[in-house]
Design a protein around this nucleic acid. Sequence first.
DNA 1: ATGGTTGGCTTCCAA
Length: 253
Amino acid sequence: MIIATWNVNSLRVRLEHLLNWLLTAKPDVVALQETKLIDADFPVAEITAAGYQVVFSGQKTYNGVALLSRFPISDVVTTVPNLEDPQRRILAATINNVRIINLYVPNGSSVGSDKYIYKLDWLEKLTAFIQQQLTQHPQLVVLGDFNIAPEDRDVHDPKAWEGNVLVSEQERSALNTLMAHGLQDAFRLFEPAAGHYSWWDYRAAAFRRNMGLRIDHILLSTALAVQCKECIIDKTPRGWERPSDHVPVMVKI
DNA sequence: ATGGTTGGCTTCCAA
């Protein structure tokens, strides 16, 4: 089974990219973030025609997550327990006896800001949920835009980014705590080197200069990590006209 | 060099 994640930064703008990418990458499951659509405007017909079932949780203007699947989708959850949050940032579902948890983790804006505090609180509540889900689902995938670069090797210029939002110690520590309950970063099962990123700022020709961060992740429970065959960051769509600032990450399990 | 770009229903906010 091929499972992918992609922050599309507006599904309205990126629908053609998504449909083209589905044809070449042929994923079985795709987790989308930043759809930026209310549910009434979700392009169900186009995605169904491409051969995918779909569930989504959207809002006006910001955020929004969706799950596409070639297989039946069940037991959908769209909230983090014990978290009052109008922002649509999580979508959990079961597909082929694999529990999939799609995340759009808050960006955090800047270290110490209200949004940063919200991000850390969100991660803390999420961690309790993940821990609970692991007890019920040995085959668990947590994937999406985490808005955290786990280590310096995931940052193009660690010195310049030191202490900044997306790389700060508190954020990395929160991610480590989340993963300490038995989750592994699929990309690092295969690739130890620096220089591999999933997001590049639109500004300052960052993609051309490979000035990026690896902030989109696929975390696998032990049962899935041991059988994972491959984890790829597909930079192809970033070369297309009017691209998202993120590219897809995919695993084969 | 405190810049630069993109998306949204916008005259700024979020990323």
